[in-house]
């Protein structure tokens, strides 16, 4: 499914930016609280998602997303527009 594919790609990008093993990232992982994303890394994540999916996101709205599955849903909504 497209959403599963989006989630997988979000996990992959997250693992790369935060230098983590993708196996340790859960859909409900919080970028900051569980994955230790620092503020600069959060901005880097947004940029990496935009590049991965070929989209442009509102930065404030994107930074307000807290979890991996939240990011996948946010991006999926963007892609469906």
């Amino acid at each position: 499914m497209a959403e599963e594919d989006t989630l997988e790609r979000v996990v992959k990008v997250t693992a790369r930016v935060l230098d983590l093993d993708p196996e340790t990232i859960q859909p409900n992982s919080n970028f900051v609280f569980d994955l230790g994303a620092e503020s600069v890394q959060s901005v880097e994540l947004v940029a990496a998602f935009e590049e991965e999916f070929g989209i442009e996101m509102d930065e404030d709205a994107a930074l307000a997303v807290e979890t991996v599955e939240g990011a996948a849903e946010f991006i999926a909504r963007h892609l469906s527009k």
């Binding site: 935060l18 983590l20 340790t24 900051v32 609280f33 569980d34 994955l35 230790g36």
Partner: peptide, 14 residues
């Protein structure tokens, strides 16, 4: 410090 092994040489906890 989630996903960090140590901070300034001190063992960190998730």
């Amino acid at each position: 410090a989630p996903r960090k092994r140590h901070i300034a040489g001190v063992r960190a906890y998730d």
